[in-house]
């Protein structure tokens, strides 16, 4: 941790300290990164609950139920949304507002498609007898993918708000809701899905 001190002072000294409005962006980014660190614990706890109960299926359906091709497609969609997100951030850095707005819209759209896919998949599973109360396996599966879906929904809400704001030019860099922070959040939601997809859908150990 010691080298942390040297580099942290850099952005600080760069700005005249007494200027009435010190740069807030590094402060917000630090908070976002530590928040993402704590979210790792949140999803980690749910993934380990799932790993604990992965074989406790009672008389309900087991992991064979998963439709791997369908889920691979939705994983690809989420991956694409990560790309459009980073392109949106790059465009925003280049002050190319029109292009940024396009990519933000695309990310929100892809996010919504992913959510629709999840909801479709859940209704499919419920038809085949895997409900939230069937077995500990079912409860932990739905809780994990459900909370991930909730995070995707919050992301889509933030993205669409930014889309609307950018329409009338009120998308500022130093507000809580800026492209970089929403980007970090969105990519985090994507890498959580990368872990979920591999551990739950593919491994089925």
């Amino acid at each position: 941790m010691t080298d942390v001190t040297a580099s942290v002072d850099a952005p600080h000294d760069g700005v005249a300290h007494d200027a009435d409005h010190h740069d807030v962006r590094p402060i917000r980014k630090a908070a976002m990164w530590v928040f993402l660190g704590s979210e790792c614990m949140f999803f980690g706890a749910m993934i380990s609950t799932f790993l604990l109960y992965r074989n406790t299926t009672g008389d309900g359906p087991t992991a064979e139920l998963f439709n791997v091709p369908f889920t691979s497609a939705s994983s690809f969609i989420l991956l694409m949304s990560s790309l459009t997100m980073v392109l949106a951030h790059a465009a925003f850095e280049r002050k190319d507002m029109r292009q940024a707005r396009v990519w933000i819209g695309a990310t929100a759209l892809l996010g919504s498609v992913f959510l629709a896919g999840q909801i479709f998949e859940f209704t499919e599973f419920v038809h085949e007898g895997l409900t939230f109360t069937t077995s500990p396996f079912a409860s932990s599966f739905y809780m994990l993918t459900g909370f991930h879906g909730a995070h995707v929904l919050v992301g889509v809400l933030m993205l669409s708000t930014m889309y609307v704001l950018s329409l009338n030019g009120r998308l500022y860099e130093d507000r809580g809701l800026n492209v970089e922070l929403v980007g970090l959040y969105w990519h985090f939601v994507d890498i959580v899905w990368i872990v979920i997809f591999t551990v739950i859908y593919l491994m089925q150990v």
């Binding site: 942390v4 942290v8 980014k29 630090a30 990164w33 704590s38 790792c40």
Partner: peptide, 15 residues
């Protein structure tokens, strides 16, 4: 910067 790297890796490795 190392600060952000530190926060995230502490979370991932810790978890």
């Amino acid at each position: 910067i190392n600060l952000h790297r530190g926060f995230f890796t502490f979370g991932v490795i810790g978890a």
